[in-house]
Design a protein around this nucleic acid. Structure first.
Lengths: 247, 247
DNA sequence: CGTCGTATTGAATGGGTTCAAGTAGCGTGG
DNA sequence: CCACGCTACTTGAACCCATTCAATACGACG
């Protein structure tokens, strides 16, 4: 556990600046946030359904995900999170968690006390707007996923997820050349997209044989960006990135 | 078109107070917002995908809904909105619309300029927090819908929608006694829940014959709240209401 | 009283699930 | 170094929830 680990906040700054411009003053206000850095293994809970957190989590390294569980054991993954994301910002204003947040693989995370964030928000309206905006992009991604689950074919859904994660990772400097480390298992993808793991497996094979992607180990390479975005009907507007130019 | 229609803002105040407490000062700051009231017919667009709105919309009367359209004409309804809702608050911080907002039936709406809202947010931190919170509840509802579409049966999904809209309408004083005016058509419900209109029709008949609800015209009556919530696995936590006691 | 949108019903089809079994990959310990 | 065990991945076959297509009935409204 480290305090005032200024360098650790770089992913957040990077993320915020991928969608807004920050003044020097705003940036240094963020950098002086007191944070507590933790290292977690894979498949560890960060916050649980019904918890009442007193701090927010920032992903520094690794992947995390949010999910809900139904009584019959069915799981719906609500979102994937990568460095720079603040997956439980909503706990700042919604006091009870309505879902779980857990690591998908080993993570370094920074915990920021609500009190410090509230202080920051009061004194730095620009930062407040940027953080609010983050939560709105989060919601925009939910809308897009909902649309996929409700109305897209399995093929389009999976293609869409690959496109989205590529742009999100690229925005924080963790992808380029149409490649990135894709951490979720096929079972995770199934639970994220409302499918079965068996069907995800078969559709992945089709995506590969159609020459759109290759995925071995957890290395994803997009072989045909154009084809993939067309299969996905992918329009990056919903990510609200500053520079959304696609490759 | 009316300006400074103070009484018109009552649904908003009511809605905000259903989840937070407002100081007198905050309340009067809201009441003095300059608003422009409009009356719209059914099936009119309020804001469209790709628009760059300069004002936010508050529903005063009627139902509205947000949706996305896929290229093959498939429609995904993202949310239903009732009086007191601010269905396009996100436009305050996300400058391009990534979906459409339209009326489901005739509506009275109030339009509030972004500039006035920004002013309000700067000077009234409590109101800012309450509005931010609204957008977070919006996102929480998306998460719940995503879970339904991804992992619940058609039966559970429809039951869930009936439960949710009952509590939301009751929170703004528009439902009681387990009854309310349910405006969406079966086709609308289908597009909201990722189903076909035919299947919605059949499942509705089952819900009726199971004695859970009756729905004639657009009057919905919940005949068995307990049974309906169990069928839906409905847990109202995600609505983040102050007084979530169920009937 | 016709007309248009909505609701209802039947029958055939299909995208995706479930169940079940088998394979590959990888870290661990003997 | 290999056996072991675990997890993820892969394949086949039967099944089903929900879709699609198509036709019919209802109901509100000018």
């Amino acid at each position: 556990m480290t305090f005032h680990a200024r360098a650790d906040l770089a992913p957040l700054i990077c993320k915020l600046e991928s969608i807004t411009r920050l003044s020097d003053r705003a940036r240094s206000a963020i950098e002086s946030l007191p944070v507590s850095v933790r290292v977690l293994d894979a498949n560890q809970h960060i916050v649980r359904d019904k918890d009442r957190p007193t701090q927010c989590c920032l992903i520094l390294e690794g992947w995390a995900y949010r999910y809900k569980l139904l009584s019959d054991g069915k799981r719906q993954i609500l979102s994937f999170h990568v460095p720079g994301d603040l997956p439980d910002m909503q706990s700042l204003h919604l006091h009870v968690m309505d879902h779980n947040l857990a690591t998908l693989k080993g993570c370094r995370i920074a915990l920021v006390p609500h009190a410090s964030l509230r202080q920051l928000i009061r004194t730095e309206p620009d930062v407040a707007a940027a953080l609010w905006r983050e939560t709105l992009v989060d919601a925009a991604i939910f809308r897009e996923w909902m649309t996929g689950i409700g109305r897209r074919t399995a093929y389009g859904r999976i293609a869409h997820l690959f496109c989205e994660m590529y742009l999100r990772l690229r925005a924080v400097g963790l992808a380029d050349d149409l490649q990135y480390g894709f951490v979720p298992t096929q079972g995770d993808v199934a639970d994220a997209l409302g499918l079965s793991n068996v069907h995800v497996n078969r559709v992945l094979q089709t995506l590969r044989s159609d020459g759109l992607v290759s995925l071995r180990g957890h290395k994803l390479a997009i072989r045909d960006w154009r084809g993939l975005t067309e299969a996905a009907e992918f329009d990056p507007v919903y990510l609200h990135l500053e520079r959304p130019e696609t490759p």
